[in-house]
Design a protein around this nucleic acid. Structure first.
Length: 258
DNA sequence: GGCTTTGTTTTATA
DNA sequence: GTATAAAACAAAGC
């Protein structure tokens, strides 16, 4: 579930609590996550920066090495006191100085942990070819337009393509297309100038607004995504349509999206 | 056992 | 190498 806004909110929430803290030790509950040698390397290092790239969370350490976490579907990062109750789905605990610990909880165990040396982000396939950050300044209407015109696939597919644009998944993809009035199955090269402009601005406004609301669905009741499962369109009350794109379901309104 | 959920990777095809 | 779609993968709930 965590897409760009959700991950951004996680990063903002934990940043102040982790910055400039030292890792005193690490306990692994899930051996598939990482290795003993990485744990040894990380031990004693200071967390000097926490940032986000797409849906990846990056912990920059003081030796220029970086720990990277991807939450995938059910991953969560929690900061707890050592005596706090331990969830049975806890996969990893990073103990910090100052009586706090960072817990990686992930019921379905789909989350990933990476470790890279000397800022070598090229080593991770998902990061190497990742597209522009939609909320950054170098994501301009001009470049968006040019790159979109080269693509022949369905627009929903392209929005979810991390190589084209970073951080959008199924839920925000649907929301962006709904608020843009564009159907998910539309071919990219068929979009008009006006539609591309609308789409560009909606990508930014939807993601920005979601972050402002802490990506909390209960805070966004006026949004389409909230009741979209086989539900009714919030604008025209017609039953929503469902179509399979890229192996997952897209929901849209026949009336409000063309 | 199949269907569903997710993001990413892999494979096949053009 | 690029673009695309489909399938596979991870794990778990129903």
């Amino acid at each position: 579930m965590p897409e760009l806004p959700d991950v951004e909110v996680v990063v903002k929430r934990i940043r102040g609590k982790l910055l400039n803290r030292c890792i005193s030790s690490v306990t692994i509950f899930d051996r598939t996550l990482t290795s003993e040698s990485i744990i040894r390397t990380v031990k004693g290092k200071k967390i000097e920066g926490i940032s986000r790239r797409g849906k990846y969370i990056l912990f920059l350490l003081n030796d220029r090495n970086t720990l990277i976490i991807h939450l995938r579907m059910t991953g969560e990062l929690l900061i707890k006191k050592p005596d706090a109750e331990l969830s049975k789905h806890t996969r990893l605990i990073i103990f910090l100085d100052g009586d706090r610990e960072l817990r990686f909880v992930d019921p379905r165990r789909l989350g990933k942990l990476f470790f890279i040396e000397n800022m070598d982000f090229q080593g991770i396939p998902g990061l190497r070819l990742m597209g522009p950050e939609p909320l950054s300044e170098d994501f301009t209407l001009q470049t968006f337009h040019t790159r979109l015109k080269k693509r022949g696939g369905r627009i929903k597919s392209i929005l979810m393509d991390q190589h084209f644009i970073a951080g959008i998944g199924n839920i925000y993809g649907d929301e962006i297309l709904f608020q843009s009035g564009i159907r998910p199955s539309r071919k990219a090269f068929d979009l008009s100038e006006e539609e591309i402009g609308r789409l560009y601005h909606t990508i930014r406004s939807v993601l920005k607004k979601a972050i402002e609301h802490d990506a909390d669905l209960s805070e966004m009741k006026d949004w389409f995504i909230h009741g979209r499962r086989e539900g009714l369109c919030i604008k025209c009350r017609k039953k929503l349509e469902r179509v399979m794109i890229q192996g997952r379901y897209s929901y849209f309104c026949e009336i409000c999206q063309s």
